[in-house]
């Protein structure tokens, strides 16, 4: 007994003295994380959780609420405005995915190649739209997309007849995609440039030795080796697409666009909450939107083989 005690005492005596409380790594970590965690829990976790609770309630008018069970979700299935919004949003997302992944990727590759002088200048130019105030963007695009606007004049050079971009139902989503392309190409170029610069130069050099041209190097080296960054940008674009809100608001003021061709899910959510003041139903729309985004993200991750063990 006494021997054992002595040994333990000797062992503990050999250890370093305990650091002061605030110097212990777990405590330090907790202190640094706490402000973020507190804000995150209060303004995100709690709010989102409460929204889920709200989605089972019927709230309309100030100070009026009652439990509604699944009524809000049932209503969603028959809400033709929601279905219109879902369709518009899905089309917009597909459109942005088809443009905002390949275009910036090719541009990023070109900007990295020796084909282009003053690469930094071009990158900054492409990035500028991201920094431009949305109010300005709204005004500029109203003029650009007007029937007698710049885009129609440009298309006219190729014999394309004048289009009412902002006045035609089926052109509302393309109009928003045009705007999104202008706004987001720059930031995606930055992501892809970062991805491309992580690919070791030796690989390109050895490919050159093997006789690969720029196109083959791009296709067989740059593309496969950028898979993680392409996945990242795809998921971000997917989020951005389904959360479409600002574009329709600044193009059409009220958010619906011609014949509700520009109505997005989030605009519908926003109007349900703040014009109709049906906070319960608006929450249900939000919950369903979150589920849609989550499901699609999982599908994308699966397609990219994210869950596979390498």
């Amino acid at each position: 007994m006494s021997i054992a005690t002595t040994t333990r005492a000797a062992r503990s005596g050999a250890r370093k003295p305990k650091p002061p409380f605030f110097h212990r790594p777990p405590v330090v970590a907790a202190v640094f994380l706490l402000p973020f965690l507190a804000l995150f829990v209060v303004f995100r976790v709690y709010a989102v959780g409460y929204a889920v609770v709200l989605s089972f309630q019927d709230i309309e008018g100030i100070g009026v609420s009652e439990w509604a069970g699944l009524d809000n979700y049932r209503r969603l299935l028959t809400d033709s405005t929601f279905l219109t919004a879902l369709q518009n949003t899905a089309l917009y997302t597909v459109g942005t995915l088809l443009i905002l992944i390949p275009l910036p990727f090719v541009l990023a590759a070109v900007l990295r190649s020796k084909l282009v002088a003053r690469q930094a200048m071009f990158r900054s130019a492409f990035f500028l739209p991201v920094l431009t105030s949305l109010v300005v963007v709204g005004v500029v695009f109203s003029l650009l997309l007007a029937t007698n606007g710049l885009l129609n004049s440009f298309l006219g050079l190729f014999g394309v007849p004048e289009q009412g971009w902002l006045e035609t139902r089926h052109l509302a989503v393309p109009a928003m995609i045009i705007m999104a392309t202008w706004r987001w190409t720059g930031i995606n170029i930055i992501y892809f440039t970062t991805g491309l610069s992580n690919i070791p130069n030796e690989l390109y050099e050895s490919a050159s030795v093997d006789g690969a041209g720029p196109v083959r190097k791009f296709w067989h080296l740059s593309v496969p080796l950028s898979k993680p960054i392409i996945l990242f940008v795809t998921v971000l674009t997917l989020f951005g697409g389904f959360q479409l809100f600002v574009e329709p608001l600044i193009l059409w003021g009220t958010g619906g666009g011609p014949g509700q061709g520009g109505l997005s899910i989030v605009v519908h959510l926003y109007r349900t909450a703040f014009t109709s003041f049906q906070l319960g139903y608006a929450s249900a729309i939000g919950v369903v939107l979150a589920l849609i985004i989550m499901a699609l993200s999982i599908v994308v991750l699966k397609l990219f083989g994210f869950f596979k063990k390498d």
């Binding site: 303004f43 995100r44 709010a47 989102v48 409460y50 929204a51 609770v53 709200l54 709230i59 609420s65 809100f245 989030v266 959510l269 926003y270 909450a273 906070l279 608006a282 929450s283 939000g286 919950v287 939107l289 979150a290």
Partner: peptide, 9 residues
Amino acid sequence: PVFAVLALV
């Protein structure tokens, strides 16, 4: 409720 919806928006 308003904060919750705001969070969603």
